[in-house]
């Protein structure tokens, strides 16, 4: 295989997309399946250790995982030539367009989730961690908004992964 082989490069980008995606969704599920349900059981004097040390580190890998997943995904869709068909969910594309419909729904779900991470969860978590100043009421509101949006992303991750796997393995 030549290094100029186009397929070799698309596989490389796909590999980056999946590794970044595991980093992102792995942390999303850690927050929702492990950290959030466990916090009420942790003695109050130990909770600052989670919020001050584990949370900032986890949020770093979480949000940049989301960014690189989106970036690699868009590059991959462009390189494979289906980005426009996917954006319009295959509607109006030459038939059969099942894969474009599936990957398109997955892309839209993933993009909504990426937006939620960078523009809702992250700004609110900065208030919770105290890196952005806020009143106690604002911190409580931020904790609620970040938590609910994180749950929305957990919900959306289930059909999003269905679409991604469907599109990659439907023949």
């Amino acid at each position: 295989m030549e290094l100029s082989d186009f397929n070799w490069w698309t596989q490389f980008i796909r590999w980056g997309h999946i590794i970044s995606g595991i980093m992102w969704i792995g942390h999303l599920w850690y927050f929702n399946f492990t950290q959030t349900p466990t916090m009420p059981k942790i003695p109050a004097e130990l909770r600052p250790a989670v919020v001050r040390f584990i949370l900032p580190e986890a949020l770093f890998w979480f949000r940049w995982g989301a960014m690189f997943t989106l970036g690699f995904g868009l590059i991959l869709a462009y390189m494979n030539g289906y980005i426009l068909d996917a954006i319009k969910l295959g509607i109006g594309s030459p038939s059969p367009h099942t894969k474009a419909t599936a990957i398109g729904i997955g892309m839209w779900l993933g993009t909504i989730m990426w937006f939620n991470v960078w523009f809702i969860i992250w700004p609110n978590q900065q208030k919770v961690m105290g890196t952005v100043s806020a009143t106690p009421d604002e911190v409580n509101a931020a904790r609620r908004m970040a938590g609910l949006t994180s749950r929305v992303n957990t919900l959306l991750s289930i059909p999003m992964l269905y679409c991604m796997v469907f599109a990659g393995h439907y023949y």
Binding site: P96, A102, L148, P159
Partner: peptide, 30 residues
């Protein structure tokens, strides 16, 4: 909606339901 999202089990079930809906939409548009 908030009550549903506050429940992890409810969130997962809603995710499976939404997946079925998405699968039907993919089938319908194919």
């Amino acid at each position: 909606m908030e009550k549903l999202l506050n429940s992890l089990t409810g969130t997962i079930i809603a995710g499976f339901v939404l997946t079925v809906i998405v699968a039907v939409i993919i089938h319908a548009l194919a």
